[in-house]
Design a protein around this nucleic acid. Structure first.
Lengths: 226, 226
DNA sequence: TTTTTTGCAAAGAATTTGCAGCGCG
DNA sequence: CGCGCTGCAAATTCTTTGCAAAAAA
C-alpha cells in the first residue's frame, strides 16, 4: 500500500492552466481549456483532480454564491467579489482587522476554522450590458402578507411587459429555437426570470416551444413586437 | 392580466414551518416537515415557493458553502457560521464596522451591492461525534510539487487503516447492503472519504457491492475486523 | 370566471462513481 | 509489476420545467 500522489501529465496541465487563468474558473471551463492541450481528457478527470489538488492544498476551492464551485490557484489569504448577474469572481484585498478574526466567543460552541468575506455586486461588463438594454431592474413582484394577503398593493402588468418585449426581441433574433440560456446572454435578465416571461408569452401565443426548453417566436409574436 | 401573488395553503405552511425552524433548512428538509402537514405537497412546490418568497422578500435565500441552498426566515441583517462537516448553518451577530461596508474603492469597477461574512468551523455536535471516534483528522494525503513530485514525504497506510476499519465496522452493523450516506451517518467520515475507503476495502475483498452504490461486508471482511 | 398554483413526472445542470485498462514510479 | 490514474458511461444529487387539473380571487 503506497497511497502516494502522482504527478500525471493531465494533473500537471490542469494545474498549469489554472495558474494561467486570470479569473477563477469553474471545473467545466477549466476542462474546456485543458481539452485544447489534451483532447482526450475527460471532465471526470478534471473534477477528480481539482478535488484532490485542493485537498492536498495545492489549489483552493471556492464555495461562493451557491453555484458551481470555482478554483483558485492563489493560496494566499484574500477575499473575493462576485457578480450577481454573471457569477464571475474576482479577488479583492481588504486588510482584515482582528475584530472579526473571532467575532465574540459565544459562537454557539463552534470550533472556528476560518472566516470568509465576500462582496457581491455587478461587474463592469454586466453594467455595460445593462446600460445597453437601459432597464437595470424591472419591477419586482408585489409583496404579500402571510395571513390575509388582501393588501391592495397593485402589481398589474400590461399585455406585453418590458421584460416580455425584451425576451421576445431576443427570440426574434434567434435563427433557430433557443434555450433560456441563450436568451440570458443577450438580455439583462437571468435565466430564471426569463422562463417566467416565456411562460407568459406562450400563453399569449407569442412564443412556441417546438421542443422541451427550446423556444421560438411565433408569427403572432412578431406582430406583437412590431 | 393580474399577476398577483396568492397566499395558498401550501405557501402558508411553508412559511410557517420555515418560521418555526431554528436552523436554516434546505428545501429538501423543509419539504419533509411540510409534508407532515400536507402529505400531498410536492417537492417542486416547495422549491417554487421558496424561490418566489425570496424574490418577493418574505424570506432570505442563503448561498453558503457551495452546497444546497438554505433558507432563512429572518430578514434582518446578520451573518452566518456553518459547519464544514455536516453543513448546518447558524446565525451569528457581529457588528460590522463601516470599514468593510466598502473595502476601498478600486473594486475593479464593480457596482457593489453588499457583503457577506461567513465563519466556518466544526459545530458542537460534530465535535462530539469526532471525539467519540477519537480521530478528528485522519492523515491528509501527501503534498506533491507540480513539476518533480519526488518529495519523499511518506504516506503509507497499513493493510487495514483506521478509517477502513471504521467503515467496515459500520457495514458490519448494517443488516442489508447500504449506501455511503448510511455509513456517513454512523461514522465521523464524510461520504466522499467513505467511498475511497470502500474502494480499497473492495480490492481487499472485505466489501462487496451487490448493486451500484450499495455495499455490504463479506465473510473475509468480518474476519478481518475481528 | 380568470389567472395563479399545484402535483406529477420528466428534464436539466453539476458532480460523482464503477470499472477495466493504462501507465507512472 | 503493483497501485494510482484515466476515460468513459452511467448514476446521483439538487433543482427546474411542461402540462393538465385544482384552487384562489
Amino acid at each position: 500500500m503506497k497511497n502516494t500522489l502522482r504527478m500525471t501529465h493531465q494533473r500537471e496541465v490542469i494545474l498549469d492552466e489554472l495558474g494561467k487563468a486570470t479569473s477563477h474558473p469553474t471545473a467545466d471551463s477549466l476542462y474546456e481549456r485543458v481539452k485544447k492541450r489534451l483532447p482526450r481528457i475527460s471532465l471526470a478527470t478534471v473534477y477528480r483532480n481539482l478535488e484532490i489538488l485542493s485537498e492536498v492544498g495545492l489549489i483552493r476551492k471556492l464555495e461562493i454564491s451557491g453555484r458551481q464551485k470555482r478554483f483558485d490557484w492563489d493560496l494566499e489569504q484574500h477575499d473575493h467579489i462576485y457578480c450577481v448577474q454573471c457569477y464571475r469572481v474576482d479577488n479583492i484585498e481588504i486588510k482584515r482587522d482582528h475584530k472579526f478574526s473571532l467575532p465574540t466567543e459565544h459562537e454557539r460552541g463552534y470550533e472556528i476554522k476560518g472566516c470568509r468575506v465576500e462582496f457581491f455586486g455587478i461587474c463592469p461588463q454586466c453594467q455595460k450590458k445593462n446600460a445597453r438594454s437601459e432597464k437595470k431592474k424591472g419591477a419586482k413582484k408585489m409583496a404579500c402578507k402571510p395571513k390575509s394577503c388582501k393588501s391592495g398593493g397593485g402589481c398589474k402588468t400590461g399585455s406585453l411587459s418590458e421584460r416580455q418585449r425584451e425576451v421576445l426581441a431576443a427570440l426574434a433574433n434567434c435563427k433557430k429555437s433557443c434555450g433560456s440560456k441563450d436568451i440570458a446572454e443577450v438580455t439583462s435578465l437571468e435565466p430564471k426570470q426569463i422562463s417566467c416571461q416565456i411562460t407568459a408569452l406562450k400563453k399569449k401565443g407569442f412564443v412556441d416551444s417546438p421542443e422541451r426548453c427550446k423556444y421560438e417566436i411565433t408569427q403572432a409574436g412578431k406582430k406583437a413586437l412590431a
